[in-house]
Design a protein around this nucleic acid. Structure first.
Length: 505
RNA sequence: GGGCCUCUAGCUCAAUGGCAGAGCAGCGGACUUUUAAUCCGCGGGUUGUGGGUUCGACCCCCACGGGGCCCA
């Protein structure tokens, strides 16, 4: 920008501001100039809006009632109406509770009313003091005798009658939370789910622990990690992809029932079901097994559903899912047999499985063994058809390297995966605790890693050393907290995460 | 990774290749009972960015960037 009238090359920032921001900055100046504060340390507040509503709503006050009770309340200005000598303002507080305030010439005086009209905008936080009354139309209100600015908003609030664009909803979640009840509710629903998960575990005697997020080696899952660096040791570090190995160490140390709820990180694609960081619950119970975990997973899910009041949800195919009904258990081999129309087992030769896959256009990697092909058939043909809660069990040993061999079925391990609404919600194992077999499995994995498989696990000597001191037989499970919230709310993952990662603007 | 759609005022959206508009919000005024109040008047734009075609581009073409949906 050039100024033909003088040498000034940097225009005052105000010159570039949109009109509404300029006006609000001027109002802020006027507040300060008039001796009022724009951002005071404290403002009068004797009651929350919710407390006022809780006190008077149940009384069913008649229109034009005067209660004689004087309160000071604070809220964000959501609507204003000015009929001249009387102004109405609707205040809203964090959870969405609203209360009307009325500012009249008679009760407030000319100067304070004028200042209100000229200095308060939609979006500001204000404090109003006055008697609790009802208006002629019966609206519960505070009849103001005084008002104060609690925090001046310098940017206008978006229209709340039209939904924000999908981008604005996630980039400026705080705005969506102000104008959109769904967005407010999601925050509290997720909190209720987390609280319920902890309560369910705590009541059963599980001990909550915290384990490192920064790790030397990755394990416990197959995923690409985030890489970082620890300056103090000049040491490359990874962000954890799972909680498993440290929780098993805790169990070796005698925490027989242990759990952690925390963030794990996977440096992979982002879409409507995958986020780069997500909350995971893992729980382990010494002397438990797959059946213990089935019971625990069911309790966790059903308790959480009850906690948010949604025990019946609508499935992706329109089917109703009543989470309180009994849940089905099904063997992976049976499910695949049904899907391909011919019985398959661990004895079915690899080339026959490959033919079955080709016939159904299931794409395979050439180096896959029979177990991996079976898993792929299941994932491609069966998984997303399982709408009602189903424990899919009896996995081939090759695809679950940390599960214990099945007590009675050769070639299979004791593992299940809970599927609800076509989505993998909670895997569980009877945990492998033979350190020799464990080492063999991890060495196999580390050889894959050395050959360049970025998802393969690394050899974690510290973990193997701990295992060699003896881990009790145990059941273990993991549960995707965000996925549980998605199931209970029907929302996408970007809705369940408060501030999802986005590309920089 | 591929395909389709989208980006215009603070917000949500219009606008045959020919003056860039509406609702809400904002500013000034009227109104002491509003419920997205009403009425009168007024401002507000680098049409995502960069190129190109054209007498003329929000519109057509190319590239890039952001976002969404579907597919793998």
């Amino acid at each position: 920008m050039t100024d033909p009238h003088g040498p000034r090359t940097t225009p005052a920032p105000e010159d570039d501001l949109p009109e509404q921001m300029r006006v609000r900055r001027e109002k802020r100046e006027r507040l300060l100039g008039s001796g009022r504060a724009a951002y005071p340390a404290a403002v009068p507040r004797t009651h929350t809006l919710a407390e006022v509503r809780a006190t008077y709503d149940p009384q069913g006050l008649e229109p034009d009632t005067r209660t004689g009770d004087v309160v000071s309340v604070v809220g964000r200005v959501i609507h204003t109406r000015n009929t001249g000598k009387l102004c109405f303002v609707r205040l809203r507080e964090g959870d969405g509770t609203e209360l009307q305030a009325m500012l009249s010439l008679a009760d407030l005086g000319e100067e304070a009313l004028d200042e209100y009209k000229h200095l308060v905008d939609i979006g500001d936080y204000i404090s109003v003091t006055g008697e609790v009354i009802t208006s002629r139309r019966g609206e519960l209100s505070v009849q103001a005798t005084a008002w104060e600015m609690a925090a001046k908003a310098l940017r206008p609030l978006p229209t709340e009658h039209k939904p924000l664009s999908p981008e604005a909803r996630v980039r400026q979640r705080y705005l969506d939370m102000i104008v959109n009840p769904e967005s407010r509710r999601m925050v509290r629903t997720k909190a209720a789910v987390l609280k319920s998960l902890r309560r369910t575990l705590d009541e059963r005697g599980y001990v909550e622990v915290e384990t490192p997020i920064l790790q030397l080696t990755n394990g416990g899952a197959a995923a690409r990690p985030f890489r970082t660096h620890l300056n103090a040791f000049d040491q490359p570090m990874l962000l954890r992809i799972a909680l498993e190995l440290d929780l098993k160490k805790a169990m070796i140390g005698g925490v027989d029932k242990v759990y952690e709820i925390g963030r794990t990180f996977r440096n992979e694609g982002l879409d409507s079901t995958h986020a780069a960081e997500f909350s995971m619950l893992e729980a382990y119970e010494a002397f438990g097994d797959l059946e213990t975990m089935k019971e625990l997973v069911r309790a966790l899910v059903v308790d959480a559903a009850r906690a948010v009041g949604r025990t019946v949800v609508t499935g992706r195919n329109g089917e109703e899912i009543d989470l309180e009904q009994p849940w089905r258990s099904a063997s992976l081999l049976d499910l695949v047999s049904e899907a391909v129309g011919t019985p398959v087992s661990m004895e079915t030769p690899l080339d026959e499985l490959v033919k079955l896959a080709d016939a159904r256009e299931v794409e395979l990697q050439p180096q896959w063994n029979a177990g991996e092909v079976l898993l792929e058939l299941y994932e491609q043909l069966v998984e997303d058809t399982l709408v009602q809660p189903t424990f899919v069990e009896d996995y081939p040993e090759a695809v679950r390297p940390l599960a214990k061999p099945h007590r009675s079925k050769a070639g299979l391990v004791e593992a299940f995966d809970l599927i609800i609404n076509g989505v993998e919600l909670a895997p569980a194992y009877t945990e492998l605790n033979d350190p020799v077999i464990q080492r063999d499995r991890l060495v196999e994995q580390s050889l894959l890693a050395a050959k360049g498989d970025p998802e393969a696990m690394e050899l974690d000597e510290a973990f193997l050393r701990a295992m060699e001191h003896g881990m009790p037989p145990a059941g273990g499970m993991g549960l995707g907290v965000d996925r549980l919230v998605m199931l209970l709310t029907g929302a996408g993952i970007r809705e369940t995460i408060l501030f999802p990662l986005l590309r920089p603007e």
